[in-house]
Design a protein around this nucleic acid. Structure first.
Length: 224
DNA sequence: AAAATAACCAACCGCCGACAC
DNA sequence: CGTGTCGGCGGTTGGTTATTT
């Protein structure tokens, strides 16, 4: 097809990086589709955006993931599933691509190995594949309304409500085969034990780690 | 030392929602 | 409303590097 080679592909060169950085400095990030016209880069807007967000941006942290970062990612993944942008948003300096790669190449193996000791099988309705391994990805999406009522919506559309104090730790538990979600108080050492590994019939998560430092909740926590 | 395999990670792809016209 | 464009997302690919045989 004509036009298929309109854009260069593959790894970025230092010269291309320099052109893109110059563009950002002069025009700010965004309007990616204009980058080619302005800089002469033979790259599509999407490619430029990705290169900036995942690599060139000064906010991107390079180097190995720390133990703390690993722990946080594991917990957030338990809570959010494969919603990498949401997870990355709570791991300072890390991009969704970094978190996703780190999970797929390292953490999922640790995670699955540990989980498999306690879990002989998975319900087929909630099985996804990661690196060829079966991983349960049941999701619960809590929503907080203006009165502090927490609506927990699971991936089957089931809803359950109850009072929640913003910032207080709470626990979601849901039967994998039903639409019911319940909340239970948790004890303070929850974060230090292995409860956040999936067991046979429940999905449990720590809601408070979803909250941003300024007290806001992510888009999934809709204030009505 | 060479070949095979595994691990890592940057980049691409397809889809989707928001928005402008 | 319908259509096109853009940005964002998660899944996947493929090239490079490290490790094992």
């Amino acid at each position: 097809m004509e036009g298929e080679s309109k854009y260069k592909r593959g790894l970025w060169t230092l010269e291309e990086d320099k052109l893109l950085k110059n563009y950002i400095r002069e025009n700010g990030s965004g309007r990616w589709s204009r980058v080619q016209a302005i800089t002469g880069l033979k790259r599509g807007g999407k490619s430029c955006r990705l290169r900036w967000i995942n690599y060139l941006s000064p906010t991107v942290k390079r180097g190995n993931f720390s133990k703390d970062e690993d722990d946080l990612i594991i917990r957030l993944h338990k809570l959010l599933g494969n919603r990498w942008s949401l997870i990355a948003g709570r791991v300072p300096g890390r991009t969704d691509n970094q978190v996703k790669n780190h999970w797929n190449t390292y953490l999922s193996k640790k995670f699955v190995t540990k989980k498999e000791k306690n879990k002989p099988s998975l319900p087929s309705s909630s099985v996804a594949r990661t690196n060829g391994e079966a991983v349960e990805t049941q999701k619960v999406f809590p929503q907080l309304n203006s009165e502090g009522q927490m609506k927990n919506i699971d991936n089957n559309g089931g809803v359950n409500s109850g009072p929640v104090v913003a910032g207080e730790s709470f626990l979601f538990a849901t039967d994998t085969s039903s639409t019911h979600v319940t909340q239970q108080p948790i004890h303070s050492d929850f974060m230090d034990n292995d409860l956040w590994f999936i067991d046979d019939y429940s999905f449990q998560s720590l809601g408070s780690i979803l909250q941003y430092p300024n007290g806001d909740y992510p888009p999934d926590f809709v204030c009505e």
